[in-house]
């Protein structure tokens, strides 16, 4: 996009800031028991104040109230939403279409903040006015380059009494790595697969090691067949004597913790965070990287005794991990 075109686009999107997206929305139904009960069913909610008069009396509420996170549900558009918004129906849609037409085709909800002034009572009608509050500078994000758009909604009841507020931030971006989309022929193979931990590539120098982990359920340690020097990670020649032949011994699995880090960010699909990633000294003298399981963060101590477990992932991949020695 040329600088001029970009400036024109920026000027146009900025003109939306401060605009209401449309007229005030008035909830179709007042706060009512059937909708609350349907909500509680779906959420697995059993809160007494939401579900029955007697139960509610035993709480601070004293009467039936609606679950707080249901606030927005009272003013949702409902059925009409299934038709989509190819033709913009309000200012928010127009802003999004403008960006989409300029290549910012991706959209991602990133943050919400809801403030509940009080819980809603049966019979109240909810009214909502939404304003386009803020559009960020163009930002580089993991998803691609784009703009964060924040809308703010004020909720009140039929008497103009304040009920709460909501801000909602979405990223409108140019996809850096376009998502695979199913072809018109219905090719489901184009669909994303459930992620799992990154697998080692299996080459001449390392494939045998992972095969032994999977087939024999052990941690193998490579051994030179000439001078019997052990080495890990595996390499194609003995750095002691230059011999290429090797076999392996089975590690006992007993180890001590050499060092560790607790990994919080960035988070990769296929891993559960935080991860306690470790370096261990195997009893046989070699060192290896792994991760620690079945151990609380505060119980991790450098020098602690560990034992190996061959862990099997949901996808069947086997990997040696460690846990505190029993």
């Amino acid at each position: 996009m040329s600088d001029e075109k970009k400036q024109a686009l920026e000027a146009e999107i900025r003109s939306y800031v401060g605009k209401p997206i449309g007229p005030e929305v008035i909830g179709r139904d007042p706060v009512n028991e059937p909708m609350i009960r349907q909500w509680c069913d779906a959420m697995g909610e059993s809160h007494p104040a939401y579900l029955d008069v007697d139960g509610a009396k035993g709480t601070v509420h004293g009467e039936i109230v609606a679950p707080p996170t249901m606030l927005q549900a009272w003013v949702m558009e409902g059925w009409d939403m299934h038709e989509g918004y190819d033709e913009p129906k309000n200012e928010q849609h127009r802003l999004h279409k403008l960006l989409a037409d300029n290549g910012y085709t991706g959209v991602l909800g990133t943050n919400t903040e809801e403030n509940y002034t009080r819980y809603l009572k049966l019979g109240e009608t909810v009214k909502a006015l939404t304003v386009i509050d803020e559009i960020s500078e163009e930002k580089a994000t993991g998803a691609g380059i784009g703009y964060f758009i924040t809308t703010k909604t004020a909720f009140e009841n039929q008497d103009g009494e304040e009920l709460g507020s909501m801000s909602f931030r979405v990223l409108r971006f140019k996809p850096a790595n376009p998502q695979p989309t199913a072809s018109a022929a219905g090719g489901e193979e184009a669909v994303a697969q459930k992620p799992s931990r990154i697998k080692p590539p299996m080459g001449h120098d390392n494939g045998w090691w992972w095969e032994r982990v999977a087939d024999d359920g052990v941690i193998p340690i490579q051994r030179c067949t000439s001078c019997e020097k052990l080495r890990h990670p595996p390499r194609p020649m003995c750095d002691g004597c230059g011999h290429q032949g090797f076999d392996s011994i089975d590690a006992s699995g007993k180890a001590t913790l050499t060092t560790y880090t607790v990994v919080h960010y960035p988070q990769f699909p296929g891993y559960e965070y935080p991860i306690i990633s470790i370096i261990v000294d195997l009893e046989e003298g070699e060192r290896m990287a792994s991760s620690l399981i079945d151990c609380e963060r505060e119980d991790v101590k450098i020098g602690m005794a560990l034992e190996a477990v061959i862990h099997e992932d949901d996808d069947g991949f086997k990997i040696p991990l460690f846990k505190p020695a029993s």
Partner: peptide
């Protein structure tokens, strides 16, 4: 090079920060 990284990646050691943190912690 990739086989080298594969001794760390499956265990969640995927970023420069994670590798340096192991040494820094000790």
């Amino acid at each position: 090079d990739l086989i080298h990284w594969s001794w760390y990646m499956p265990f969640g050691l995927l970023t420069p920060a994670s590798w340096i943190a192991l040494q820094a912690n000790l």
